[in-house]
Design a protein around this nucleic acid. Structure first.
Length: 843
RNA sequence: GCCCGGGUGGUGGAAUGGCAGACACGCCGGUCUUAGAAGCCGGUGCCGUAAGGCGUGAAGGUUCGAGUCCUUUCCCGGGCACCA
């Protein structure tokens, strides 16, 4: 039976799996959903199978819909130059086969493919809704540009400031990008976290990512009034009197005007150096060692008229607040460090507590040195001081209360071929006005982009013209200008566009009749891979619907996933982006709930034997097909679950699989004898010993609870304990065996089904409800009480569960292991925890 | 650098503040066998013949009692907005 030689263990269980798909059921199914599965990942790996597997065990006895998705594969296509769809298709076929061979109860009728135009039609449709609501705009944003490769590179494609491929130098370059205004939803995204059942760590990460902070915007006059005002954001307006200099982000638009002739060279050099760094580099380098350059100009502190120098430094980011700060070294560690480095003055405006030895003091305390004219904060603590100064600033029209978020708008475009095309064409101002007269569905404010003196207007395709498909292209390689390969497809790109219908013909052809036809250039950017995976969980509810992303009935009936499983690497981005889209759809009345993922779980991945992430290049990949061939599906499933907690990462251990395989053999042997007939020790008439019955009920309880809490490893160990007891018993009742097989079924469905039939169980084991346990049987009358002396374990004794402290103490005193430790000591105190311990404190 | 996890035997891992190491793997001994495989029985944190002592990355602290709570610290992993 090595390799589970009994062929019936391996029968295809598709017919077995209990699957509910329609929503005409009387009872709504339990809806689980896994994160996106990418066929781009190496397919012969066990780790990705594992992600899906454990969740498949969740409440198998309930009716279940399992779903999976495929997103496209782009990088291989770029590397090999083959059509991406071909690779994807091969991978999908193999992936499906593997999933099925593991016996998952997926609902294949609901499989969706985010690269299918029938699917991305609705991705584009959602984009149009965002566009109409003014949540999509165009802006110049820096990206990594490699002049040698003539292409845009992702962060991960940069290694040590060089391109990963070829090691060529890279630089930051501004390109026209689509950006989604996720910041408009910052407050809602933060607020919604209160209502979801997620790991606290994930909630905290999202909170930190959104990064809400309350403070004030303050207007500083510049010494040269021609330059206007300098607007800064601070969370500590109460420390305004301690401001001794200002810092602008090097890319702040006022910098050129503020820079004096003598400082010009230094400032320009610093700006260039900073521009070559990503934000992450800037932050980590700035945290280690501050740097900056004086612009030569000064600003005027609005509270006391003091003249303060204006610097630029990379520890201030343009993307946060106003890109400018007032520096208060006495109350801010970063500013302190900078002030010390460049010998700038420091004025304490909060009295540190007695004995304070640190540098900057960021805690609470009474304000000092904060009086000028009628205005004084002195003596006020931080909160009151903030309130007073903010009110004063507002009254003087020098500033206002302001809430700021670290969250930045979502850069939503890519310069690649293989992504959803934007359903947008660019037209002239006059054509846009003409279209606006014909179309009611344009945003309140037009989205425009200026280039070479002309302003282009973004005109959306009408919804009826979706999907906008990718043209077949000559080459999947980048255009070389920073635009996607689509920029080379002139016939697709330059068109006569019908503003009413969305129809288009190549611009080389004569202009069709009708005023709604206008000259247009299509958007060449494509959407990021996030787009399709932002809403796929909704498409599963109604995957073939041609009229809507899903019918209102399906959206209402199924709602959102009961459990969403995805890796911790998605903790911030994917989960925040998807929540954002969902909230927009909620506001549009399309989905009935404000949050998409009510309960969230992160699963770990299986590492290679060497404890490192599986990868083909490391050669530490385990192929599930091989394991199934030598041990069988049930063993593999059981092993993956037995390895450890779902959330943890753990290395694959080829030896470990023997243990669970032996366990399944043991189950088989206890049921079926050598001759293939039911084991004679299983009896219809035998009454099991009370201990065994109790153990069975304990096992039912523990496994059930563990499954609900997704602790499969401990439920399996409980089943092992139970089987070890069955093995030691000379006889066992058929009832008990059948009950056990019901418990085993969600973990090892094939063997459980086979044995269920052979042991005379009715129907399919998978159709039977989870057995009930009798809690009365679980009450212990006798318990082992542990005796401690001064907190150290000295002995134990079986005693009645209801024993009194006095009686227990008498037993302990007489206990041969305990007594010597009490000799010659006086008892100070006794701690008695019924059914647990008796701790005698002596001196 | 910042945010979030995690460090427990030779290994994977168990432990509502109450016997650290359940359950497995591995290893050692025994049994069965012509021999082996499989199975079964017993042992297995470290030091020690034993009594006992020591043990959950390290150092402090709270507590009658700490793997668990607090402080500091080291190491490993994930995320940091164009991998998704």
């Amino acid at each position: 039976m090595k390799g589970g030689g009994d062929a019936s263990w391996f029968q295809d269980v598709e017919g077995y799996a209990v699957i509910a798909t329609g929503f005409n059921q009387s009872r709504r199914g339990f809806l689980r959903m896994l994160g996106v599965i990418r066929p781009g990942a190496p397919l012969s790996m066990i780790d990705r199978r594992y992600e899906s597997l454990k969740v498949d065990r969740f409440k198998r006895w309930q009716r279940i819909v399992q779903t999976t998705t495929f997103v496209r594969l782009s990088r291989t296509a770029v590397k090999t130059g083959t059509h991406p769809a071909a690779n994807t298709q091969n991978n999908i076929v193999n992936f499906r086969r593997q999933i099925k061979s593991l016996g998952f109860s997926y609902d294949w009728e609901r499989e969706v493919d985010t690269t299918d135009p029938k699917y991305f039609r609705w991705t584009q449709w959602i984009f149009l809704q965002l566009f109409k609501k003014g949540l999509a705009y165009v802006d110049e944003r820096p990206v990594w540009w490699c002049p040698e490769l003539r292409t845009v590179l992702a962060n991960e494609e940069i290694v040590d400031g060089k391109s990963e491929v070829g090691g060529f130098p890279v630089e930051r370059r501004n390109l026209r990008q689509w950006v989604l205004r996720i910041t408009a939803y910052a407050e809602q995204l933060l607020d919604g976290l209160k209502d979801v059942d997620w790991p606290d760590s994930t909630k905290r990460m999202q909170e930190a990512w959104i990064g809400r902070s309350e403070g004030a915007e303050v207007r500083f006059k510049l010494e040269d009034p021609k330059l206007g005002d300098l607007l800064i954001f601070t969370t500590r307006p109460d420390t305004l009197f301690g401001c001794t200099y200002m810092v602008l982000a090097p890319e702040h638009p006022l910098v050129p005007a503020l820079t004096t002739a003598t400082q010009r060279d230094a400032v320009e050099a610093y700006r260039r150096k900073t521009a070559a760094k990503s934000d992450v580099e800037r932050m980590s380098e700035a945290a280690k060692e501050k740097s900056g350059v004086f612009t030569g100009s000064h600003a005027i502190n609005p509270v006391n008229g003091a003249k303060v120098p204006v610097w630029i430094a990379d520890y201030v980011l343009m993307g946060y607040g106003t890109g400018a700060i007032m520096a208060v070294p006495a109350q801010d560690e970063r500013d302190w460090e900078f002030a010390k480095l460049y010998d700038l003055p420091i004025i304490r405006t909060v009295q540190p507590p007695e004995g304070f030895t640190g540098d900057a003091y960021t805690g609470d305390g009474p304000a000092i040195n904060s009086t000028h004219g009628d205005l004084s904060l002195d003596g006020l603590h931080v909160t009151e001081a903030k309130a007073k100064i903010t009110a004063w600033l507002e009254a003087q029209q020098l500033g206002s209360r302001r809430i700021n978020y670290k969250l930045r708008d979502w850069l939503f475009s890519r310069q690649r071929y293989w992504g959803e095309p934007f359903p947008i064409v660019w037209v002239s101002a006059s054509d846009y006005q003409h279209a606006a007269a014909l179309r009611p569905d344009l945003p309140a404010q037009p989205v425009t982009f200026a280039e070479g003196g002309t302003t282009h207007y973004a005109l959306p395709l009408p919804e009826s013209a979706l999907p906008l498909e990718l043209p077949d292209v000559q080459s999947y390689l980048p255009s070389g200008t920073g635009e996607s390969p689509l920029a080379n497809e002139t016939a697709w790109l330059e068109v006569w566009f019908n503003a009413l219908t969305g129809a288009a013909i190549p611009a080389t052809q004569p202009r069709p009749a009708g005023t709604e036809w206008m000259r247009a250039r299509r958007e060449t950017n494509t959407m990021p891979q996030w787009a399709g995976s932002c809403w796929y969980y909704l498409r599963f509810l109604d995957p073939r619907n041609p009229d809507a992303l899903a019918s209102p009935e399906a959206l209402k009936y199924w709602g959102v996933p009961d459990l969403y499983v995805g890796g911790a690497e998605h903790a911030v981005l994917h989960l925040l982006y998807a929540r954002f889209w969902h909230k927009v759809l909620f506001d549009l009345g399309i989905v009935p709930q404000a949050e998409p993922f009510r309960k969230l779980l992160h699963q770990g991945i299986i590492l290679g034997e060497d404890g490192v992430k599986m990868s083909k290049s490391r050669g530490n990949v385990v192929n599930p097909d091989d394991i199934i061939r030598s041990y069988g599906t049930d063993t593999l499933r059981l092993y993956l679950m037995f390895l450890g907690p779902l959330e943890a990462m753990k290395p694959w251990n080829p030896k470990g699989i023997e243990g669970v395989h032996r366990f399944l053999h043991k189950v088989w042997r206890e049921c079926i004898g050598e001759n293939g007939q039911p084991n004679p020790k299983v009896s219809d008439t035998h009454e099991d010993a009370p201990e065994l019955i109790k153990l069975l009920h304990e096992t039912i309880r523990k496994t059930g609870e563990d499954i609900e809490n997704l602790r499969f490893n401990t439920s399996i160990s409980q089943m092992m304990i139970f089987m070890n007891a069955v093995q030691k018993a000379p006889q066992v009742s058929r009832r008990t065996i059948l009950a056990f097989l019901q418990i085993l079924a969600p973990f090892a469905p094939h063997i459980a089904e086979e044995l269920w039939a052979r042991m005379g169980g009715a129907g399919s084991v998978g159709q039977h409800p989870w057995p009930a346990y009798d809690s009365n049987l679980l009450e212990n009358t006798m318990v082992k009480l542990v005796f401690q002396v001064n907190g150290r374990h000295r002995g134990d004794q079986l005693v009645p569960a209801t024993i009194s402290q006095e009686a227990a103490f008498e037993i302990a005193k007489a206990h041969e292991r305990v007594a010597p430790h009490l000799m010659g000591k006086s008892v100070q105190r006794i701690i008695f925890v019924p059914k647990k311990i008796l701790n005698i404190v002596v001196a």
